[in-house]
Every structure is written in structure tokens, then in C-alpha cells.
């Protein structure tokens, strides 16, 4: 067979491709903002509202950072919402037991990482499909959270953890020079800063480190990665633990936001997280998906929810819209990748 060499459409460097890949989600975000800017009342296009949306992005955004690694490696994680709830309960219980804020927060992150370790362990040791494994831990982690919390909200003293999700954070801890000169629009909830810094670090991890390259290689062509000497099982395990820890961090902030440990919180959040990653340009077949894209996806969904609320659009319309956007984003991506491979 002398196949006609198809003119490669996607020929270009990794950097060029990344810009092209992020363009779609970014345009989507602009369209949503422009749409509500025209429809919604005045308040929508204000700095204050932008800060509100940014704060509402944090929980899904942090979890989406971890989920990007999983989806890029060709896996899926359905246990995110339950891991968030478990982490919030663990943090609350630790605070209640008199541990300080930092140790309590760390314990919350560890609880999330433990869910990730169970996921990764089952996926790599028993060679089970991630969908089934995380469907199992979706139930099990939720159950564990309810068990620990005795099926009710866990009240706990919340100190500065509460500040993390506050739109008007207490700046008294900052040095006087900064406090007096910081412009108003930079006074974001610390959680937003945390999300931003985590995203930059994760993007570095994905792009520049061996771990990030192996993550992509496994999602792109697992047999080849194995043939080339990539420790596939160990890498996958690390990916799930990392993603679990990110969900745990989201859970700690969820505790800060609610000021209680709630075992029933973040129900169904896993779907928002997957949606954010997918809207950001990831394909569930692995190999693609960027941190920036996932952040845009999370921000887009929060903007949509916020805009609908402000314009008095009923909740059900909002749910239909989110559904349509997910399917639309994946359809567009399908066209793109088909063009690439045909």
C-alpha cells in the first residue's frame, strides 16, 4: 500500500499546539461573559462580582487540577465529591479535637490523598478500570465521611481557615506597607490565590518534569510507555494520590467556607470537575488536557452559574445549559481531533 501521505494538519511545536488548544475554551469563556454582560443586570460586570465568581471557582478548580492529571493519563476519577466531603469532615474533627489549623488542614489533605491511594492501588494492583474503582470509592468515601461525622454536621471552631474563602479577607496579618498600598481588585479570597499558585505549580509539573511527561505518555500510548521503560504502575499510583490530595485541599477549603465539616457536601461535584477539565480541552481518551484549560473550564462554569443567578434564570435552565455546553465542547473537540488524525 502506498498510502498518500496526508498533509499533517496539526504540524507544529508543542508550544504552538498548546496555544491553539486553549483558544477554544477561552473563546467560550468570552462568549459566556459577553452574553451575560448583555443580558444580566449591571452588577455582573463589576470587579466585586468577578471576585465572587473567582471564589466560587476555587473548590472545583483545585480538584480539577488533580483531575487533569488523571484524565491526561487516560483515567477518570468519580470519587472527587466524596473525597472533598471526607476531607472537610476530617479537618473539622481535628479542629474539634483541639489540633491547630495547620495540622488539621494537613490531615484533611491526607484524607483526600488516602482516597486517591485506594483508587491508585486498585487501578494498578488489581488492574481494574478506573471508572469502576472510583465509582466504588465514590460510595465508600462518602460512607466513611458519614461514619466519622456520625451522620451529622461537625461543628468546629474555625479560625483563619474561614478567611480562605472570604471575599473580604482580614488583612491585618499582612505587613502595614502592603496592607495600605494593595489595590482593591487584588484583595481576593486567599483561596483564589492558593488555586492560582497551585495551578502554576501543577502546570510546571505537567510540562517540565519527568512525572508530567510520563503522565502524558501513559495516556497517549500506554504499551509504548511501558516498552520504553516508564514505570507505568508507579506513575499511575502517584497520579491518583496527587489528585486525591488536591481534592483533599478542596475539602479543607470547603470546610473553611461552611465552617462545619459536612459529610453530605459536594454531592455530584465530581461531574463539575470532569466537566471543567473536558471543557478545558481534555479528551477522555487521554493524552490531552491542560491546567490552564481546566481553570478556564471551572471559571466558565462558575460564571454561568453566577450569571444565571443574577439574571434570575431558574436553576433548571442553568443545569440544561451546563449539559449543553459539555456536550458542545466535546463535540467540537471530536471534530478537531478527527481532522488531526484523518
Amino acid at each position: 500500500m502506498e498510502a498518500e501521505d496526508p498533509t499533517p494538519p496539526g504540524r507544529g511545536t508543542a508550544a504552538a499546539r498548546q496555544v491553539a488548544d486553549i483558544l477554544g475554551p477561552f473563546l467560550g469563556l468570552i462568549v459566556v461573559v459577553a452574553l451575560f454582560g448583555a443580558v444580566a443586570p449591571e452588577g455582573f460586570l463589576s470587579v466585586f462580582n468577578a471576585k465572587t465568581i473567582a471564589t466560587q471557582t476555587v473548590i472545583v478548580g483545585l480538584a480539577a487540577i488533580g483531575a487533569t492529571f488523571i484524565i491526561r493519563s487516560g483515567g477518570i476519577d468519580l470519587s472527587v465529591g466524596s473525597a472533598i466531603a471526607l476531607a472537610s469532615v476530617v479537618t473539622a474533627l481535628a479542629m474539634k479535637a483541639g489540633l491547630g489549623e495547620l495540622p488539621s488542614a494537613l490531615l484533611g489533605v491526607v484524607a483526600g490523598a488516602a482516597v486517591g491511594a485506594v483508587n491508585g492501588g486498585l487501578v494498578t494492583l488489581l488492574k481494574l478500570p478506573p471508572f469502576i474503582v472510583t465509582l466504588g470509592t465514590l460510595g465508600a468515601a462518602r460512607g466513611a465521611a458519614k461514619w466519622l461525622a456520625d451522620e451529622q454536621k461537625v461543628d468546629a471552631p474555625s479560625g483563619w481557615l474561614k478567611q480562605f474563602m472570604s471575599k473580604n479577607p482580614d488583612l491585618s496579618g499582612l505587613p502595614g506597607v502592603i496592607r495600605e498600598n494593595v489595590p482593591d481588585w487584588l484583595v481576593l479570597a486567599p483561596g483564589v490565590w492558593l488555586m492560582g499558585l497551585s495551578a502554576v505549580a501543577a502546570a510546571f509539573l505537567l510540562r517540565r518534569t519527568v512525572f508530567g511527561t510520563w503522565t502524558t505518555a501513559i495516556g497517549s500510548n500506554e504499551p509504548t510507555a511501558r516498552l520504553c521503560g516508564v514505570p507505568v504502575e508507579r506513575t499511575k499510583f502517584a497520579i491518583y494520590v496527587f489528585a486525591g490530595a488536591m481534592a483533599g485541599l478542596a475539602g479543607v477549603l470547603q470546610f473553611g467556607r461552611l465552617t462545619v465539616g459536612d459529610p453530605t457536601t459536594a454531592m455530584g461535584k465530581e461531574l463539575d470537575v470532569i466537566a471543567a477539565v473536558v471543557i478545558g480541552g481534555a479528551s477522555l481518551s487521554g493524552g490531552t488536557g491542560t491546567i490552564l484549560g481546566a481553570m478556564i473550564g471551572a471559571f466558565l462554569m462558575a460564571t454561568l452559574a453566577n450569571g444565571c443567578n443574577l439574571s434570575g434564570v431558574p436553576n433548571f435552565v442553568q443545569e440544561i445549559l451546563v449539559g449543553a455546553i459539555i456536550v458542545g465542547a466535546v463535540t467540537l473537540d471530536g471534530f478537531r481531533s478527527r481532522r488531526r488524525t484523518s
Partner: peptide, 19 residues
Amino acid sequence: NLCPHLSVLENVTLGRETS
């Protein structure tokens, strides 16, 4: 046996990256 989502260099060095 290549990973299409990686660059030529990343493919050539896959599994034996110096870091």
C-alpha cells in the same frame, strides 16, 4: 511505537530522561 501527544524529543528520551 510512539506517543502521538508528545514531541519528538520527548518520545526519543521517554523512559530514560535525565533530570
